[in-house]
């Protein structure tokens, strides 16, 4: 709980702040994750495009192997996203996993956090399985080709990022702290009759 604050009092007792409570929905982590998945599903890369990318320019045997890996990736995505979600949600989750693991050889902390942020708690075996699937899928394809594909269509490539407001502003994290005391309180607190001579 926040300690008592002057501005809290001013908000409650003065007439200069917005009085009516916000009317909209109060979002929590669960709702946020759902919204995030919705937004992700609308972004550039789709399951169809991944399927096409992994299958094109390959011979039949390679295509079959790729198809098998894609199926496994979908299964892992299903384990992560949950059974009650539809095919669209599962494919979108598989796209997310593909983007997450396309240049990774193991499930690290960053990837775990990213998946959890998107889907909430998930079985780690599903994350490991999807990481392995993506690695096997992309092994026959060149690294640069994969990178180009992701760069062109992936949601994590944000063309606006470089021009974000405030990127050149020198921000200081310094904050107000208690004034240092010349005479530490321990002496002042306990010795009532001491008379300090300045």
């Amino acid at each position: 709980m926040s300690p008592p604050r002057l501005t809290g009092t001013l908000r409650s007792f003065s007439t200069v702040s917005k009085k009516e409570a916000f009317s909209g929905q109060l979002y929590d982590l669960k709702t946020k994750r759902l919204k995030r998945r919705e937004l992700f599903a609308r972004e550039g890369l789709t399951w169809k495009k991944i399927y096409h990318f992994c299958s094109e320019h390959q011979d039949k045997a390679q295509q079959q192997a790729a198809s098998q890996q894609l199926k496994s990736l979908l299964l892992a995505a299903k384990d992560i996203v949950g059974n009650e979600d539809g095919q669209e949600a599962i494919e979108s989750a598989a796209v997310f996993l593909f983007e997450t693991f396309h240049n990774k050889d193991h499930v690290g902390t960053e990837e775990t956090r990213a998946i959890k942020q998107m889907f909430g708690p998930f079985p780690s075996s599903a994350a490991e399985a999807s990481c392995a699937c993506v690695a096997r899928l992309l092994a026959p394809l060149g690294d640069s080709r994969v990178e180009d594909f992701i760069q062109a269509l992936g949601s994590r490539h944000d063309p606006q990022r470089g021009s974000a407001f405030g990127r050149n502003i020198a921000f200081s994290y310094e904050c107000y702290t208690l004034h240092p005391l010349e005479d530490l309180p321990c002496s002042g607190v306990h010795e009532e009759d001491t008379s300090l001579d300045f």
Binding site: T7, S14, V16, S17, Y176
Partner: peptide
């Protein structure tokens, strides 16, 4: 109400020391 007096006071005490 993008800014009001309590918000301005909060901004000062949170960010004012270094900015």
């Amino acid at each position: 109400f993008l800014f009001d007096i309590p918000k301005i006071l909060d901004l000062c005490v949170l960010f004012g020391k270094g900015n």
